[in-house]
Design a protein around this nucleic acid. Structure first.
Lengths: 230, 230
DNA sequence: ACCAGAGTTATTGTATACAAACTTGTTGAC
DNA sequence: GTCAACAAGTTTGTATACAATAACTCTGGT
């Protein structure tokens, strides 16, 4: 089945916003982007609507659409919700998870361990995502799974940096083990608590997150309008 | 600030879908709706994009947009997530709630009680929504609050019928009291458990929910097209 | 020099025109 | 009679044209 042009455009723009190519407050110029994607304004505007619902951009009538990157407060709130959503997954999964899934989680953890040994941060990141994906799936709640995946994708660029913290990989591994152990016992409360602690922004993670927020704000003065696109 | 036509159109369509005017599988005809709203197809298509992100409709390329009402499974999943989200609110609110908010919750519960006495289901429903809104707010997490409000609105048409269950109002009241009591003690776990039980679909609520699902399928033959708009 | 206001320019919102592709109906062969 | 293939007719997707409004500029006044 062929996809619409506006679909791929929405995805591309979403990626550009998530990875920080567009900074907070940048105006998305219709004609400029239309030229860039080699389409008319129509599919672009359709893509904008979708981004607006996802809160990635804000549409101000007769003014244009503006990128809305989460500020420090919003970001902490999102991480907090992520932690609670994953805790819900763990709670539900504790009584629903299959033996096969438990095996797979242990296998993933094994590969995580191997990546830690070799200092392969990217490899660890991949397996870590897989670990969480299994957890979402094992909540046996497709709606919850979808919500988790979406929020995870949105937080991914911020989450990623935290892995470079010294000793973070090993600690993260240990937390994974705790989650699996609780799930194995069918201990819903313990599983929820373990994954919540794993995801929550606390300790050094907080400082790293805050400092990463100031990164995209350099290279431009406080000016809101007239952004220089690449 | 003046709003766009496509904004109000999206809201109107959302309302029509949520209240069941459009049944599952109905195709939203662009030209037909354009005539009805007295606009061109352009703003309609922009509205469609927004509905698609909210999973209210499904866009099948080159085929059209189709209403997607949640089936039994999806509905139970959504209620389960609602329960978990509210549990998260309660957990966070337990240590964040203000004395003023606690007072307000007690006041709302008082009005709920009065409504029960007079068998005023509508009044109870209003105050009940207010109760939950306060809880969301007291999570002190705007992102979470927003997610809760959105899901609540989506589930509202289904939730409403459950109040007509015999003895449901009194039981619901008691559950509210339990939540407030736990919050007052600052007992996060108890507050989460209480609100989860309050929201969860269980016992007789399950049967009522399932039977209400067959309701929207009457009043129309298997015909897919030509829905009668107000 | 600075502010006010009208006119100009630029940009968004909407309508219409055109192109592509899916549906459907008909015809013909087996 | 059934199935396949082709053609007509819809319907969606995209481009372009037009309208409305906000931003900007330039001029004139104090």
């Amino acid at each position: 089945m062929r996809r619409k042009r506006s679909d791929t455009i929405a995805e591309t723009l979403e990626g550009l916003i998530l990875d920080g190519t567009f900074a907070d407050g940048d105006r998305l110029d219709e004609v400029q982007l239309a030229e860039r994607f080699d389409v008319s304004r129509t599919p672009l505007r359709e893509a904008f609507q979708r981004l607006a619902v996802s809160n990635l951009v804000e549409q101000i009538p007769r003014r244009g659409v503006f990128v809305r990157q989460p500020g420090p407060v919003a970001l902490l709130e999102m991480f907090e919700v992520m932690a609670e959503l994953e805790a819900a997954c763990a709670r539900l999964a504790a009584s629903r998870i299959t033996d096969a899934a438990l095996d797979e989680m242990r296998a993933v953890n094994g590969r995580c361990h191997a990546s830690v040994e070799v200092r392969d941060v990217d490899g660890y990141y991949r397996e870590n995502e897989r670990f969480h994906a299994i957890l979402y799936r094992q909540s046996a709640n497709g709606f919850l799974e979808d919500k988790c995946l979406r929020l995870q994708r949105r937080l991914a660029p911020f989450r990623r940096r935290q892995l470079h913290l010294r000793g973070r990989l090993a600690q993260s591994m240990a937390e994974h083990e705790a989650v699996v152990a609780a799930l194995e016992r069918g201990d819903a409360a313990a599983a929820a608590k373990a994954i919540r602690a794993h995801v929550a922004v606390q300790g050094e993670k907080f400082h790293l997150l805050m400092s990463s927020l100031k990164q995209p704000a350099d290279s431009r003065t406080g000016d809101r309008h007239a952004p220089n696109l690449p």
